[in-house]
């Protein structure tokens, strides 16, 4: 899965940001990674690839919004990843 970057670029506008572009832009930044299970991992993104395999540093594991564990280094296999988000997050309970 080499994230065929040019596929979506038919618009030609400068504002198009494909998944490949996103992966390039976020290395070294604080991120939130959510898995399909609903568990969140917050930390510094050390390294990642087109499979969404991820290596993170200073990782904190959140289950139901509560901190459960901390890891110095963590590898996440890409098939479990629901999304990778740049860090800026607020939580609220809706009706």
């Amino acid at each position: 899965m080499s994230s065929g970057g040019e596929k979506a670029a038919s618009g030609g506008g400068g504002s198009v940001k494909t998944p490949a572009d996103f992966l390039k832009s976020i290395r070294g930044r604080p991120v939130v990674v959510k898995l399909n299970s609903g568990v969140d991992y917050r930390g510094i993104l050390a390294c990642l690839d087109g499979y969404m395999n991820i290596a993170m540093e200073q990782t904190e594991e959140y289950v139901n919004g509560q901190l459960k564990n901390k890891y110095g280094d963590a590898f996440i296999r890409g098939n479990n990843v629901l999304y990778i988000s740049t860090s800026k997050r607020t939580l609220a309970e809706g009706a």
Partner: peptide, 9 residues
């Protein structure tokens, strides 16, 4: 449950 996110893949 509502979560706001800046930019995501």
């Amino acid at each position: 449950r509502i979560t706001k996110l800046d930019q995501i893949l």
